[in-house]
Simulated assay, not measured.
Amino acid sequence: MDGGPSRTAMMAAGGRAAHLVVDSEPYLFRDTLAAELLGARAEEVLGYHRQFGDHVVLRGTRAQVNARSSYTEARVSAGFRQYVILGAGLDTFAYRSPLAREIAVFEVDHPATQQWKRELLAAARIDGAAARFVGVDFERDDLTAELAAHGFNPEMPALVSWLGVSMYLTESAIAATLAVLRGFAPGTELVMEYALPAELRDESGTAYAEFALPAAAEQGEPWLSYYSPETLSELLGKHGFTVAEHVSQRDAVDPALWRRTDSLHPADLCRLVRAVVVAD
């Protein structure tokens, strides 16, 4: 990244913000700071959702980012004292959740993305002190060492979220990150989002992919990795994880939240896997 805004981070934050504006209750998730953090760009991003909110990509993005955030943040309350957010982007957990006052929150991302976020936080007058910014260039830096330098305790289990990232990485890059996470304390949980291969997508997931994947490639962010639940479980097993569950978008939130009067509905394009680091 060259220091400019992250397109994927803006899309995710925009989807969380727009959900509270475009969609009707019941809400899948309430990110009450996303619009504020987007600042001057908020109205532009929200405007697209207001005008074209029923488009398969925009409504699909809102469903995806809010369902995955709801599931992941629910896991934070399972007794973890450390929360590591890989590819944090414009995540707002540390600034709105009461749990952030009780646990250590480590936001891991490229230094340029973090500088941009710090500027947005300052402009919005949001106190960023609750998050520990861990700037990492994954091609050059040691993630474990950088986390430790910011107070991470490798002997204490952590929740690690890895959302909206793996599909943009090669399998070798994914494996390298899993090898690092394997060194975290037993009991550490990883919540990872992954993309399904074409043959496992449902109709909504296929329709989303037909629009979104070519656009992502044209903008220099092609999707590179796809997994079935079985192949990802095998990869995680090789790196010392035990898979607890694979979670579809439909199952990521209370089923009652999908009984809706608006156009929002789940798509099977990406899923979540929750896996646990096991002792040697």
Rank of each mutant, 00 (worst) to 15 (best):
133 F>H: 10
62 R>E: 11
163 L>F: 02
194 Y>G: 00
170 T>A: 02
118 R>M: 06
135 G>M: 00
164 G>L: 01
87 G>I: 12
170 T>Q: 03
87 G>W: 14
78 A>E: 15
61 T>E: 14
92 T>M: 08
68 R>D: 09
110 H>Y: 02
56 V>P: 08
172 S>T: 14
53 G>C: 08
164 G>I: 00
100 A>G: 07
84 V>E: 10
55 H>E: 14
128 G>T: 03
179 A>S: 13
66 N>H: 06
125 R>L: 09
108 V>M: 05
118 R>V: 08
181 L>Q: 12
193 E>F: 01
85 I>P: 03
124 A>C: 05
132 R>F: 04
186 P>M: 08
126 I>P: 02
95 Y>K: 10
73 E>K: 11
66 N>V: 03
84 V>L: 08
194 Y>S: 01
67 A>L: 11
82 Q>L: 11
57 V>I: 10
68 R>F: 15
52 F>V: 01
163 L>A: 00
70 S>D: 14
59 R>V: 14
158 A>M: 07
101 R>N: 15
153 N>I: 08
192 M>R: 05
66 N>E: 04
132 R>H: 11
169 L>P: 06
125 R>N: 10
149 A>H: 03
189 E>T: 11
54 D>I: 00
70 S>I: 04
118 R>S: 02
192 M>Y: 06
68 R>N: 09
59 R>P: 05
87 G>C: 11
190 L>I: 00
129 A>S: 15
91 D>Q: 06
127 D>I: 04
159 L>E: 05
92 T>F: 07
172 S>P: 06
69 S>W: 06
88 A>M: 12
118 R>D: 01
121 L>P: 01
101 R>D: 15
90 L>G: 09
156 M>G: 07
197 P>D: 02
101 R>M: 05
118 R>Y: 05
89 G>A: 01
65 V>L: 02
106 F>H: 05
132 R>G: 07
198 A>L: 10
180 V>Y: 09
172 S>F: 06
167 M>S: 13
149 A>V: 06
75 R>Q: 15
167 M>I: 11
170 T>C: 02
119 E>Y: 01
137 D>K: 00
184 F>C: 05
175 A>I: 10
175 A>H: 04
185 A>L: 02
176 A>T: 07
70 S>R: 15
187 G>T: 14
86 L>M: 10
142 D>S: 12
136 V>L: 11
170 T>Y: 02
102 E>A: 13
102 E>N: 06
163 L>G: 02
91 D>W: 04
90 L>P: 09
71 Y>V: 10
73 E>S: 13
158 A>C: 08
99 L>D: 03
81 R>N: 12
108 V>I: 03
53 G>V: 06
63 A>Y: 07
105 V>M: 04
111 P>G: 09
134 V>G: 12
144 T>F: 12
52 F>K: 01
177 T>M: 13
